[in-house]
Nucleic acid binder design. Structure first.
Lengths: 229, 229
DNA sequence: CGCGAGCTTGACGTTGTTCAACTAGAGTGG
DNA sequence: CCACTCTAGTTGAACAACGTCAAGCTCGCG
């Protein structure tokens, strides 16, 4: 973990929602006081149960958002890529995180004090609506997840996870950043069964897999499998 | 379903958060224009996929909030009792409900136009915070639900559901308003297995059950079962 | 009296987890 | 450079957990 204080929004090339809101409000950019932090792979960006003090925005890299379950078994809800909020769920929520986030690779985030955010959305209604939207997408994807995890068989769940990763990468050919165990946690199944299904899909010619390099050969079929589940 | 327009907040004995916020803001109570509706048992108060237009507050009765899954199988997330919001999740969320709510008995609700709510929370910061809190409780209970449904065995899940119903009723002796099927949906298990576990608990002397009349005899043990899952 | 909805129980088959063993590759220290 | 260890991945087999199917039961209501 490496802090870098004194970052200026003007120097940042993201131009995030917060930046936009500040500009629209005619507020002073110097007031934002963003705090950039770089996390190494496996480091915790946020931890279930800890207090929420900042809005966190992913600037670079990727991270997994997961709930810590029983006997050290986790369930990954989704993967965070640049330009997504962490801690927003919790921001709207309670003073404590109800999930954990950890870096999947070297990941840079930007922290903004919650008090500043609150001040901002009271001045700027559009900003609040945009926050709500980001938020709402999370909620409905979680609802979807509950159904998937409880009502689809593991074959359908793995298919869905692969399609999800594909959509994140905007490509049918990409590297799954996750270990087999993590891929399993994304579908709430055991590591062994994850592997079994991957080889099954490969034998059936639906995917091509070499280590972590995945190529979805028959997307239509994979979607079918994911739906029928 | 029976509408009653022209209800006055002054005549309503609930004195809900909205009422309080209006008073605190010094706004005009006549502006609220609440719409009271009475639903019969089994009627849908809100329906997954439909647009969200009002904040809904449960005035009297009870309802189940559930997600509609595959093959007509639902998962009940929680039971709504008076003084809880419906449509708040969605209000903060997206223009569409990501779940359904239906009445478990004759249930009266109060609808307030969302535009009015928005106007209100922009004026009254406390009100917004209170909404957020109600909201946050939902989110963290949903996180909990995901773990429970995926990592506990059915024995633990049914135990948890019974304890949940008990806490709703503030008593160890109460009537489960739900059918066996619905009780199963609360734990995402089949109706048959729900029944099996109920009789199992009864034989073990943990509960006493007569039709829908439930008496939790050994709460400690039930909690233990729910935790070990 | 008969019908249907909700409830109950048993038997059976499927699904997914767990345990155990083995492999391959990466890193480490002698 | 080789032996080691550690981690990630892979596979098989046994077992446990649940869901499903089928049948029967009870109670309220027409």
């Amino acid at each position: 973990m490496k802090f870098s204080k004194g970052v200026k929004c003007l120097d940042c090339n993201l131009k995030c929602d917060i930046y936009k809101a500040v500009i629209e409000c005619g507020a002073d950019l110097d007031e934002v006081k963003p705090l950039h932090v770089i996390y190494k792979k496996h480091e915790n960006i946020s931890k279930q149960g800890r207090p929420v003090s900042h809005a966190i925005y992913v600037v670079d890299g990727s991270a997994k958002l997961y709930i810590e379950g029983l006997n050290n078994r986790n369930i990954i809800l989704y993967i965070l890529k640049p330009q997504s909020y962490i801690g927003l769920l919790s921001f709207f929520e309670s003073p404590f995180y109800s999930y954990s986030v950890s870096a999947l690779e070297e990941t840079q985030i930007c922290m903004i004090d919650l008090d500043f955010i609150k001040k901002l959305y009271l001045q700027n209604h559009d900003f609040l609506i945009r926050l709500n939207k980001a938020f709402g997408k999370s909620v409905s994807s979680i609802m979807n997840k509950i159904i998937t995890l409880n009502q689809k068989n593991i074959r359908g769940r793995v298919a869905e996870s692969l399609l999800y990763l594909s959509s994140l990468n905007n490509s049918e050919k990409f590297s799954i950043f996750l270990t087999r165990k993590e891929l399993g946690e994304l579908s709430a199944i055991s590591e062994e069964n994850t592997v079994r299904l991957l080889t099954e899909f490969r034998r059936e010619g639906i995917i091509d897999l070499n280590g972590k390099e995945l190529h979805i050969l028959d997307k239509k079929l994979l979607q079918k499998i994911s739906e029928v589940g």
